[in-house]
Design a protein around this nucleic acid. Sequence first.
DNA 1: TCCATACTTCGAATATTATCGAATTGTTCG
DNA 2: CGAACAATTCGATAATATTCGAAGTATGGA
Lengths: 123, 123
Amino acid sequence: METLNAAELLAALGHESRLSIFRLLVEAGPAGIFASAIGEQLGMAPATLSFHLAHLSRVGLIRGQKESRFIRYTAEFPTMDELIAFLTSNCCQGEACLPRASACDTTAKRRNLETNTNICKES
Amino acid sequence: METLNAAELLAALGHESRLSIFRLLVEAGPAGIFASAIGEQLGMAPATLSFHLAHLSRVGLIRGQKESRFIRYTAEFPTMDELIAFLTSNCCQGEACLPRASACDTTAKRRNLETNTNICKES
DNA sequence: TCCATACTTCGAATATTATCGAATTGTTCG
DNA sequence: CGAACAATTCGATAATATTCGAAGTATGGA
């Protein structure tokens, strides 16, 4: 990943509203959630929400799929994986190359994946 | 780490110039480098560089230590570690909780640490 | 067809960031 | 002391981002 691209992803996540949106989508897992649900949970005006969703979509961190009147948004995990790999590889110290003991549990627990392979070290 | 704080760190890194500065400091390791060297390598006007260094310092990603006329800047690795832990724990998918095979080598190689413990998996 | 819903796009105001020349501070050295 | 140098702060400008009401698009249902 190029520095420019990484900076774009970081900037996209570097806004409280967008980071909250993204975390919500990660929590929701592959099932995702509808735009209206996001707006409801975060108390955001529809236009503002759309603005941020468009931004996150543009850089490839999320994806929206129309379903009748609704749009289901999901996190693009591979993009995030790449970003974390970039940070780990270019911006972190040796001791942190492996995630902390506590790093893996939170997200892993609430996930319901088809592929149930959790490579996380059991702390 | 709170979402607000994480967003601040991400926003700080979400600018090409600042990300380049930070990568340079990570590359330099604990020895760090002088501000002038950064400006030289990145071709940045002194005032602009100071602006970005101040930003990175404010959020705790780097630290500057005066040495006679110069200021030696170093990356604050623990802050970055926390950020990566936050992202891994809150924003990534199971398969990515462990870094990619290639994630650890680049940075680890060029580092010359007092603590020489490299926990990275040998790929 | 007509209305309600879900969401986006438009447009315009406001706020925040970035850039960099010029002035300033602090330090070394002749 | 005075000049040269490293770096920051100031100040003004330009560029970019954020917010959200209002209008537009598309879908589902009465």
